[in-house]
Design a protein around this nucleic acid. Structure first.
Length: 519
DNA sequence: TGTCGGGTTGTTCCA
DNA sequence: ATGGAACAACCCGAC
């Protein structure tokens, strides 16, 4: 113990980036010449230890990531130190105990992380600890993009973002290897029985909650899944076109399902891009597999530089739309609890709750239904549900996609509405997906699987599913509310966009100029 | 403060 | 059966 107390240490703080490969901040700690020991740390922040915020499926996934990380580190004769509590309180105690001189971590763009990390930096300055960070959650450092953009406005379309970044920044950095066993990775052999990775049952708030997700956390699993997909489904990788994949494929999904691993950084996007590029010829962005990583890049960047990105109020790129009052939440609850009476929507919501994952187009369908399509409930509420239930819930991507689907930002063709009936019909005419996730409809004839309320009573009886008793009546009439909502959207745009020039009137130039000469 | 082409992933109807 | 137009008409970015 005396020895340890006199030797300086470097701490690598894992938050996301839960991997050993392509982790330059970890390598900075390992290779730092003025410190003897490396202490890999994760801090279980109580702000995330609540099932109302982080659902049981994602919490379990996180703990599995930490277990895997610990095991991988032990192969390097190191280990993971798991601190419990607010990092601003726990880290300094740890720093003093182990004479920390250097702190490294992966740069994080999220608002909570930004303010937390600012405080940690301040604290380190007081303690005389050097801080080094690396931006490795995305292909590029968002600060590099911001610097290149200079005074230009933030690109709000995929194409303009992609064109600008590829032209100005060229290829992303290549992925780095994990630290080798002989890399000088030294971790003191102390506190063996403390700072261990907890099991789910040790987290009080999660006791008694059942884990249903099929996703197993960790870098090892991420790499295995990626290599497996590249090997077994190479043709699909080459021809991959996201809009052409099926949202009803189950149990073998039509996509890679790597999103939970990207969310926690179990898998480096740079490594993924390099590995996919080894297969040729490839489909091109935006629909290609690499194109998907660019969507992540685009949304992460815009979320980073946009104030109040997670809400309508004060968000400069968000349409101001008078969504239904928050107090009137019967519709929201029906949606979240899979009781809308539209089998396609409800089946999706059951899969979301059980597995913590939905195909991208299924997310589109339920998001459109909750907001501009049918229920006219604020996208912020749907965002909260996704944030709690998705194993892959990511601040930037989740908010961006809700902005998109509610046609609040990025996407503006609000008259394109997903039908909860004909949309799933083209992928799954027999409704196998619905029958699996809503067993109450298992016996319903295919003709009525998406519209069971239209089935004659004898058919309902024969299927052992009486609408109104065993399965609810539709909460709204899609054909009717869709029209109403389009009109509402039109009104909201007229009211909220004074700079907008109405197309219809356009009488003459004089009138237009006199009405707009306000300053 | 114009114009126009295009926007990862709509639906319905008709030929 | 598949492909194209009507539906109603948005905003962004490039010129």
């Amino acid at each position: 113990m005396w020895v340890i107390l006199t030797m300086a240490s470097a701490v690598h703080w894992f938050r996301k980036g839960l991997r050993l490969h392509d982790n330059p901040a970890l390598l900075d700690a390992v290779q730092n010449p003025t410190t003897t020991y490396v202490l890999p740390v994760f801090c279980l922040d109580p702000i995330f230890l609540r099932p109302e915020t982080v659902g049981v499926n994602r919490m379990n996934f996180l703990l599995e990531c930490l277990q895997d990380l610990d095991q991988q580190l032990r192969k390097l004769h190191s280990r993971l130190f798991v601190l419990r509590g607010n990092p601003l309180e726990q880290l300094p105690v740890f720093f003093r105990k182990y004479h920390t001189r250097l702190l490294t971590f992966e740069f994080d763009t999220e608002p909570y992380a930004k303010q937390r990390d600012t405080q940690v930096r301040r604290l380190c300055a007081e303690l005389g600890i050097e801080v080094r960070t690396r931006a490795t959650h995305t292909l590029y450092d968002p600060e590099d993009i911001r610097r290149e953009l200079g005074d230009r406005p933030t690109p709000l379309t995929y194409k303009s973002f992609y064109a600008f970044v590829t032209e100005r920044l060229g290829q992303p950095m290549s992925a780095l290897d994990a630290p080798a066993p002989a890399s000088g990775f030294q971790t003191p052999d102390v506190d063996l029985d403390t700072y261990t990775v907890p099991s789910l049952s040790e987290l009080e708030a999660y006791q008694g909650l059942e884990v249903e997700t099929p996703f197993r956390g960790g870098e090892t699993e991420a790499l295995r899944r990626m290599e497996n997909f590249l090997r077994e489904r190479a043709d699909e990788v080459r021809s991959f076109a996201k809009p052409a994949t099926s949202p009803t494929a189950w149990p073998v999904a039509s996509t890679t399902q790597l999103s939970p691993y990207f969310k926690f950084g179990c898998l480096s996007p740079r490594l993924f891009v390099e590995r996919v590029r080894s297969l040729r010829p490839l489909q091109q962005p935006p629909v290609s597999l690499i194109g998907q990583i660019w969507w992540r890049e685009f949304f992460t960047y815009v979320a980073y530089v946009t104030p109040h990105f997670h809400q309508m109020q004060g968000n400069p790129i968000c349409r101001q739309i008078p969504w239904r009052e928050a107090a009137d939440d019967a519709r929201y609850r029906a949606w979240e609890e899979a009781r809308t009476g539209y089998p396609w929507i409800d089946a999706c919501m059951v899969q979301l709750r059980q597995e913590g994952w939905l195909h991208h187009l299924a997310r589109h369908a339920v998001a459109c239904f909750l907001t501009r399509g049918d229920l006219w409930v604020s996208w912020e509420r749907g965002r909260e549900t996704f944030d709690r239930l998705l194993v892959d819930a990511d601040y930037s991507l989740n908010n961006a996609n809700w902005l998109w689907l509610s046609s609040s930002a990025f996407f503006h063709q609000y008259y394109r509405v997903y039908s909860p009936i004909s949309f799933p019909q083209k992928y799954d005419p027999n409704g196998e997906y619905v029958r699996h996730f809503l067993p109450v409809l298992k016996e319903m004839p295919s003709k009525y699987i998406y519209t069971p309320w239209l089935a004659p009573v004898v058919v309902q009886k024969k299927a052992k599913c009486i609408i109104g008793e065993d399965y609810p009546h539709p909460i709204v009439d899609h054909a009717v509310v869709m029209r109403e909502n389009m009109r509402r959207m039109r009104e909201a745009l007229d009211a909220g966009a004074p700079q907008r020039v109405p197309k219809r009137p356009r009488r003459d130039a004089n009138e237009a100029s006199s009405s707009s000469s306000s300053s």
